[in-house]
Amino acid sequence: MDSNTKKAEVVGQAAAHDDPANAPSVLDDAQALWSELRGLGYDHLRLAALETQRAGESLVSMVMAAVNVAILLMAAWLGLMAAAVLWSVENNLVATSSAILLAVVFNLLLALIFCGVIRRKRHYLQFPSTLRSFQPMPSQQNTEKP
C-alpha cells in the first residue's frame, strides 16, 4: 500500500464517522458500555471467588498445621511432666503416686489460669466498641431533667 491509499482510507473513515447515517447511535454506545461493565463485573467476581478459594485452602492448611503443633506440644509437655515425676522419685523427694498426683494438680492449676484468661478476653469477641458506635447518640433533651 502506498501513502495515497492510506490517506484515502483515513479520509473515507473520517467521512463515514462524520456522516450521521453511518455513525454509531447512542443506544449502540450504551449497549457496548453495558457489555464492557458486565464483563468487568464478571472478572471482578471471578477474581474474588478465586481469592476466596485460595484463602479457604490456606486457612484449612493453617488449622491442620496448628492442630499438629498442638499435638506435638502436648506430647512434649507430657514428656516434661514424666521427666519431672521421675526426677522427683529418683531423688526421693516424693513417692511415685504423690509425684504423679502433684503433676496432675499442677496441670489442673495451669488449666484454671488459662480459663481465667479466656474468661477475661471473651468480652472482646463481641466487638464492644463497634457495637457501641452503632448506638444512637443521646440527645441533649433526653439527658436534661426539668
Rank of each mutant, 00 (worst) to 15 (best):
A21G: 11
N107C: 15
R38D: 05
A75S: 12
L125T: 04
E144Q: 14
N107Y: 11
D2N: 14
G41D: 07
V10R: 06
W77A: 11
A23N: 04
A14H: 04
L72V: 08
T143I: 12
D28G: 13
F114C: 04
G56T: 11
A99V: 01
V104G: 00
T52D: 13
C115M: 10
L59C: 10
L72R: 13
P128L: 01
S98D: 14
L131E: 06
L109P: 02
H44Y: 10
R132S: 09
L101W: 10
Q141F: 08
P136K: 09
A23L: 07
H123T: 15
D2T: 03
V67Q: 12
F127T: 07
K7C: 03
A16F: 00
T96L: 09
A83C: 04
V117E: 03
L50R: 14
S3H: 13
N68M: 14
A14P: 02
S139E: 08
L112S: 12
L33P: 01
S129V: 11
A55L: 05
L93N: 07
L40K: 15
F134L: 10
P138N: 09
I100W: 02
P146N: 01
L72C: 12
A32N: 05
H17N: 12
F114L: 11
L37E: 05
L80F: 09
C115W: 05
E36N: 13
L125R: 03
P146R: 02
D19W: 01
I118H: 05
A70L: 09
T5S: 11
V94E: 00
E90A: 08
V11R: 06
A32F: 04
A103F: 00
A16T: 02
D29W: 14
Q135R: 10
A82R: 03
L93Y: 14
D2Q: 02
A32H: 06
N107V: 15
R46T: 12
A55H: 04
M74D: 14
P146D: 02
M62C: 11
Q53H: 08
V69A: 09
L112N: 03
R46I: 09
D43W: 02
S98R: 15
L40C: 08
L73N: 13
Q135K: 09
A111D: 03
I118V: 11
Q31V: 10
D43R: 05
G79W: 00
P138E: 04
T130V: 08
V11T: 11
L108E: 01
A99I: 00
G39S: 04
H123N: 15
S35P: 01
Q53C: 07
Q135L: 08
A95V: 12
K145F: 08
A21E: 10
Q126C: 09
S129T: 11
D28V: 15
R54D: 04
R54T: 05
L108Y: 02
Y124R: 09
G56F: 05
V26W: 03
L78A: 10
V105T: 10
L112Y: 06
A49R: 11
K7H: 06
E51V: 01
S139R: 04
A66F: 10
L110A: 11
A103Q: 00
L73C: 14
S129G: 07
L78Y: 13
M64R: 15
R120E: 07
T130I: 08
